[in-house]
C-alpha cells in the first residue's frame, strides 16, 4: 500500500514551468494526430469520391501551392480580411463604447445590434452585390457584417463591467471626463474588448471566404468555387486547410496583441474571461 502511495506521488511530479509547457502541448498534438489518422483511415475504408483521404489532400495542396494558385489567391484574401476586420474593429469598438457609455444610445441601437447578431449574415451578400457590384467593397461589406456585431456586443459589456469604485476614485481625484475615459474606463474595459475582437476575427475569416465564394470569385473563395465545379474534392479540402490555418494565425495575432496590452490580468481571470467571451 505504501508502494502505491509512493508511485501515485511520483506520477504527479511538481509542476515546473518547463514541464507544464510540455504537458500542455501534448494533448492538442495527440488530438490532432488522432484526427488526421481517423480521417485517413475512414476515407480509405469508405472510398467515396467526395471524401479523399488526408494524404491526397496534402498532395493536392502541394500541387496547388507549387502552381502558384494558392499564394496569389492568399494575397487577395488576406487583403480583404485585414481591411474588413480593421474597419469592423474600429467601428465596432467605437459604437460599442458609445452604447456602453450612454444609456440612450444603447436603447436606440440595441435592437439593431441583436437583430443583426442573430441574423444569418450571408443574406446581406446580395444586397452588397446590388449596391457595390463586383467590387472589393461588396466583400468588405460581408466581412464587416459578419464580425462587427459581436465586437459591439462585447465592447458594450466591457464598458459596463468597469468597476464603479474605480470611476468614483478617479472622480474623487478630480479627473476630467477625458482622463476618466483614457486612464480608467478604457484600460479597465480592454480585456473584454479583446475577447470580442477574438470572436470577431474568427467571424471575419468566415465572412471573407463566403464573400469571395458568393459575390465575386476572387481569392481563396474563388479557388474553392472552381474546384467545386470540377468536383475536385481534394482541392476544396486543401483550400479549407489553408483557411483554417489563416483563421488560427489571425486569432493568435489578436491574442498576442491582447496579452501585450492586458498583461496585468491574472492568469485565472484570463481563463474565466476566455470562457465567458467564448460563450457570448
Amino acid at each position: 500500500m505504501n508502494a502505491t502511495a509512493v508511485n501515485a506521488a511520483r506520477s504527479h511530479p511538481p509542476r515546473f514551468p518547463a514541464r507544464r509547457h510540455l504537458t500542455n502541448a501534448a494533448p492538442p498534438a495527440i488530438a490532432l494526430l488522432a484526427g488526421i489518422l481517423a480521417w485517413e483511415v475512414v476515407a480509405r475504408a469508405w472510398g467515396v469520391v467526395f471524401f479523399p483521404p488526408f494524404s491526397a489532400v496534402v498532395v493536392r495542396l502541394a500541387e496547388l501551392t507549387a502552381g502558384g494558385r494558392i499564394l496569389s489567391s492568399l494575397v487577395g484574401t488576406l487583403t480583404n480580411l485585414v481591411i474588413g476586420f480593421t474597419i469592423a474593429a474600429v467601428f465596432g469598438v467605437g459604437i460599442g463604447m458609445l452604447m456602453g457609455a450612454y444609456r440612450k444610445v444603447e436603447m436606440a441601437l440595441d435592437i439593431y445590434v441583436y437583430a443583426m447578431l442573430t441574423a444569418p449574415s450571408l443574406v446581406f451578400a446580395p444586397i452588397f452585390f446590388a449596391i457595390f457590384g463586383l467590387s472589393r467593397a461588396s466583400i468588405l461589406g460581408v466581412v464587416i457584417i459578419y464580425s462587427i456585431f459581436i465586437i459591439i456586443v462585447n465592447t458594450v459589456a466591457a464598458i459596463r463591467s468597469v468597476p464603479i469604485a474605480l470611476v468614483e476614485m478617479g472622480r474623487s481625484y478630480c479627473a476630467s471626463e477625458r482622463q476618466l475615459f483614457m486612464k480608467i474606463i478604457l484600460p479597465a474595459a480592454l480585456p473584454l474588448i479583446f475577447a470580442g475582437l477574438r470572436l470577431g476575427i474568427g467571424r471575419a475569416v468566415k465572412g471573407t471566404i463566403n464573400g469571395e465564394m458568393f459575390i465575386t470569385a476572387v481569392g481563396l473563395g474563388a479557388v474553392v468555387i472552381s474546384a467545386g465545379r470540377r468536383f475536385d474534392a481534394a482541392a476544396v479540402l486543401a483550400v479549407l486547410l489553408v483557411i483554417i490555418i489563416i483563421a488560427l494565425v489571425a486569432v493568435k495575432i489578436v491574442q498576442i496583441v491582447d496579452a501585450r496590452m492586458t498583461g496585468w490580468l491574472p492568469s485565472t481571470a484570463r481563463q474565466q474571461r476566455t470562457r465567458r467571451g467564448g460563450g457570448a
Binding site: A165, L166, E168, R171, Y173, A188, T262, L265
Partner: peptide, 19 residues
Amino acid sequence: GPGPERAMVFQSFALLPWA
C-alpha cells in the same frame, strides 16, 4: 464637487489593477 484639497481612501482600496 471633488476638490484638490480633499482626498479619499476607499474601503475597496480602488487601486488600478493594471498599474
